[in-house]
Structure formats: C-alpha cells, structure tokens
C-alpha cells in the first residue's frame, strides 16, 4: 500500500531537514524547525493520530519556536563560519550512513505499513478498543488510555514537566553575574593570608 499524501509530506520534511543542515543563519534554522514540526503534525493527522497532531502543532510549532527565538535573542544569530578539517566532515557522515544502513536492514522484516495483522495490534490494543467503552466509558480511547489505563505513566510525565521547570528556574533566575569569574578557593585563601 502506497499512501501518496504521506510520502509527499515525508518528502517535504526531508527537504526541510536538509535545509536546516545547510543553513548558517540560526534565525532561519529555528523558523524551519517550526515548519518541520507543522509538517509532522500534518502527517500525524494523515495517520489518524489527531490528539498527537494537536499537541505537536501547539507545542512543536508554537511554544518550541518561541523558546528557541528567546534563546537566540540572548545568545547569537549566526553560526560561526569556518573551514572545517575534512575528518570533521567525513567521520560523522560515515557514522550516520553506517547507523542508517543498520536501521534500514532492521526494517526489512518489519510488518508492512498499515498491516492490520502486525504484532503491535495484537497485544493490548484490542483490549483498549473493545472494552474501554464498558470499563471507562469515554468515546476518546486516547484519553481513557492516557488518564486511566496508563495513569501511572502520565503521573510520571507530569512530574517530569514539573521537574524541568524547576531546573529552568534554578538555572536562569537570580542575579546575572557581571564579573565573569568567581574567586577560586585558593585565591580566597591567599587573600586571607595577606590579611
């Protein structure tokens, strides 16, 4: 089965990713990152994952881009231009090609795209699809799995979001240090000896 729309959108994503790789202007890179997220949201709609598409459009294309732009305002807008020694270009490329080849080899005996008899559809998903209306009573299966069947998982994810915020606050609130270096312990000891 060949899904034309799906392949076309994935092709657009590939083009966007290549442009991100080649561009030096970080502002353009961040905006293309937003476009990349929006394209992936379209793919999610095409693959029936409406909840995921919704989240990706709001988070990936919205908040993520705003945060990246905020970071650019605090740092710099251009990537440094310089000639790199050739081993710095070829070594990562070889690593990527080798990893990619291994992954493609791994897909060869994977179930076909859209195959209803794939192992993934045989294990817990039938329970969710057949019984969730009687056990939880929500028309949206994703919500009932998210909040009820896998409630522990979501509690963990919520805690991770909370912890990340605490981390950002620890890193970025408080006074901005003007003098770049704090005196080290040895220097403090020297000062004490002088006194």
């Amino acid at each position: 089965m060949l899904d034309i729309l799906d392949i076309a959108l994935l092709f657009f994503m590939a083009v966007t990713a290549i442009s991100i790789l080649r561009l030096k202007n970080l502002f353009a890179v961040v905006m293309l990152g937003g476009i990349y997220s929006l394209l992936s949201a379209l793919i999610f709609v095409n693959l029936d994952a409406v909840d995921v598409a919704f989240t990706e459009a709001a988070v990936g294309a919205g908040i993520s881009t705003v945060l990246m732009l905020g970071t650019l305002a605090l740092t710099s807008r251009e990537e440094k231009q310089e000639k790199k020694p050739s081993h710095k270009i070829w070594l990562p490329l070889m690593v990527c090609i080798a990893t990619g080849a291994a992954l493609v080899y791994g897909t060869l005996d994977m179930p076909r795209y859209g195959d209803p008899n794939a192992p993934i559809h045989k294990h817990v998903a039938p329970r969710y699809i057949n019984d969730s209306m009687d056990e939880v009573g929500m028309p949206n299966i994703v919500t009932s799995v998210l909040a009820s069947y896998r409630g522990f998982d979501t509690l963990g994810e919520t805690t991770v979001v909370f912890t990340a915020v605490v981390g950002v606050l620890i890193l970025l609130t408080g006074r901005r240090r003007r003098d770049k270096r704090e005196p080290t312990l040895e220097e403090l000891e020297e000062q004490e000896e002088e006194v």
Binding site: G70, V161, V165, V168, L169
Partner: peptide, 24 residues
C-alpha cells in the same frame, strides 16, 4: 477521576510553559 486528573495535567503544563517563557 479522568476529569480531575486531566485538570491537574492541564494546570502543570500551563504553568510550566508560561513560567519557562517568563524566565527566558
């Protein structure tokens, strides 16, 4: 249960996103 739990998730995510933006 689902309604309350989703409310908790919504509160945390809302506060987290806004707070991160404020900080940046």
């Amino acid at each position: 249960g689902i309604l309350i739990v989703e409310l908790g998730v919504g509160l945390t995510v809302f506060a987290a996103m806004t707070l991160i933006f404020y900080t940046f």
